[in-house]
Amino acid sequence: MAEKIATREAYGQALVDLGATHDFVVLDADLAAATKTAKFKAAYPDRFFDCGIAEGNMMSVAAGIAASGVTPFVSTFAMFAAGRAYEQVRNSVGYPHLNVKIGATHAGITVGEDGATHQCNEDIALMRTIPGMTVINPADAIEATAAVKAALELDGPVYMRFGRAAVPVINDRPDYRFELGKGVTLAEGTDVTLVATGLMVHLALEAREILAGEGVSARVVNIHTIKPLDEELILSCARETGALVTAEEHSVIGGLGSAVCDCVSAACPVPVKRVGVEDTYGRSGTVPALLAYYDLTADHIARAAREAVAMKK
């Protein structure tokens, strides 16, 4: 069993590590202990600014900081970064294309016991509609660390999506390389491609094993950058395997599944089955119970893959 680390832990540590060599500041809205920016606060107290429980103000403050030539990382839960402060992200940060890096934690259903009000399954959909916004959803702690560095080096606004729950480390290999906007083919296959993002990537790899036992050859692709989407890779998967399954810990509306459908419907229409949270709210529960309840499982990805393959002409 692989080591399990929450991507928010990697985010907090990456801020500390990069803070030694890069002169950025960090803002939080009274959630530093949970978002893990508290690590940065402890290391560089004069570069950390708590904005209190006022996320809209925090996002516009961040825009003012960026307009003054300093890059801010801004953290709160995804619900409040992408939801509460959507309009501030859109108008204060997005429209002027400012260097604000949003580190949104506690995204998706795996918030767990806090339940529906805090389980943001809509943030990818909201953020990817903003022109010029880069949207990253790392699969594990290693990818999260790389994403923070890439976000810092990019000129423009970035939305990074991190999770509360510990997830298996799958990228622990010497040749691991993170390239913004480039998907990663983790395993080859010929009958169907499992296009996954975030914590669903390791479940897609498990689904591939299930399918292999049934004689179905599944390719697995990790899409860490939802926007800009690696359309070249998605289209080559569509052409070469003829069917796709998307998998995300997010609503099936507006997220990775929608982005992939947008892409293939315009250039290479093939069957696409979307695995994600159906058009509904979350609920309280443990992480394993919630993933099972909302069909975010390897078994369900495998079932969707069988259906997609059956739809091929």
């Binding site: 103000n57 516009s60 403050v61 961040a62 003012g64 003054s68 204060s92």
Partner: peptide, 8 residues
């Protein structure tokens, strides 16, 4: 709010 960010 953005003016606050600049002043900060």
């Amino acid at each position: 709010s953005s003016a606050c960010g600049m002043a900060l």
